[in-house]
Amino acid sequence: MNQPPIVVENLNTHYGDRHILKNVSLAVEPGEIFIIMGGSGSGKTTLLNHLLGLLVPTSGTIRILGQDIHAIPALERRKLRTRMGVAFQSGALFSSMSVGDNIALPLREHSNLDETTIGIVTRLKLEVVSLAGFESLMPSELSGGMIKRAALARAIVMDPRLLFCDEPSAGLDPVVASSIDDLILRLRDAMGMSIVVVTHDLESAFKIADRICVLDRGEVLALDTVDAIRRSDNERIQNLLNRRTEEAEIDPDAYLRRLMGEKERSSRFGPDARKGL
């Protein structure tokens, strides 16, 4: 019962020839808020897409709620997904449906509840995210913060065991971002689910995290509690925490070649080589 809801072992992934995630291993404990943090290009969104089963890894295993998400049959995977909720960065609300219909969709598709009950559950979830009375609006009529809340309401409508949030505070003003953090904390306390949050917002991460996994260039740089991460003497982690940029190594020859618009010497494959085809 108390087995970790997410276990990732030796995950390696590639985009074409580029090695994106390198031997990533981690486990998310029941009921914890687990933050995946890292700068742009660190591979955190790729890791999230793998946890959601949207991408197939080169090697390694991902066990969600005890099941290997890539080894189980498609039917089992769809059943498994009804026990997970996902709030995407953009909200990904269906623009052709009202907010209420968006939130009710998983219930309509996966349960035999009648419309009255679905309406009650939908309004209940909207109350939880403080959007009561907004069910008849279309997603285009909502503000950024309201879209994030509606996306969270849709993600929790099936009472999932696992909740994933992609950049919940990105693009929001500090007050609204903080209210989303409070909402995530409240959801965990009320529903006891494990929550995985992908973010690059340090303040938000430190406020809500139980444990933080710092990704850097596709590798797990650190995986520990908030205090341990704060105290870390690793230079790259301190750079990230203190918002210091890292000086790139300067290669005068390469710089000159780039200015002249010349390609790398190893690239002898005609003009299309640049497209990485």
């Binding site: 949207l54 769809r78 997904r81 996902v86 995407f88 990904a92």
Partner: peptide
Amino acid sequence: INQEIDALTVMGIA
């Protein structure tokens, strides 16, 4: 491009 198809997939809706 709005990730709505991904949203369907992760909801377990084909």
